[in-house]
């Protein structure tokens, strides 16, 4: 379970659909690991407006690290120009158009959202208390029949 995914998941129990307490799900007994994935600043700047920042701050706190209280402001980066060949897609070329400050923010978001993983643990709904188990990074969202 990446923090990215957690920022978009809410409780699957039908009765929780309308409850503001069902998002975000709260991490419990989480074991963290870091997994390296390719840096994609274009995607991150595309995602940023959709992130629920207060939820991300809450999730981070539960996992033991701190983020700034308010959502950082990063200009939308467009797709790298067609002129640059895909093969030289190194990090510098990809980030063209971003300022140094934006670059720092995007690197931080990359680490938090894309590379931080909960390997084992639980996610608990603040509304109904249902616990979604996480095992080998995979969260189990299969609901027992009386809830599904």
């Amino acid at each position: 379970m990446k923090l990215l995914t957690a920022n978009f998941l809410s409780c699957a129990v039908k009765a929780c659909k309308s409850s503001p307490l069902s998002f975000p799900l709260h991490f419990k007994d989480a074991e963290l690991a870091s997994k390296s994935v390719p840096y994609n600043p274009v995607l991150l700047s595309n995602l940023l407006p959709r992130l629920d920042w207060p939820a991300l701050v809450t999730s981070s706190k539960e996992l033991g690290f701190a983020l700034p209280d308010s959502k950082p402001d990063v200009a939308r980066i467009s797709t790298p120009s067609a002129a640059s060949s895909p093969s030289d897609g190194d990090d510098t070329a990809m980030s063209m158009g971003a300022t140094d400050e934006d670059e720092k923010t995007l690197r931080m978001l990359h680490k938090v959202l894309m590379e931080t993983e909960v390997v084992e643990g639980k996610m608990v709904c603040g509304s109904c208390g249902f616990e979604y188990g996480i095992h080998q990074t995979v969260a189990n969202f299969l609901l027992p029949s009386h809830l599904g």
Binding site: T5, F8, F23, F141
Partner: peptide, 29 residues
């Protein structure tokens, strides 16, 4: 999903039944 983990895919994986509904908030994807 276990095979996907072995193959070290970059995407994040969830165990779920699409017939129970997808547990994501509005406007995610």
């Amino acid at each position: 999903l276990a095979v996907a983990l072995d193959r070290e895919v970059d995407g994040d994986l969830l165990l779920g039944d699409m017939g129970q509904g997808l547990p994501f908030r509005a406007g995610s994807f």
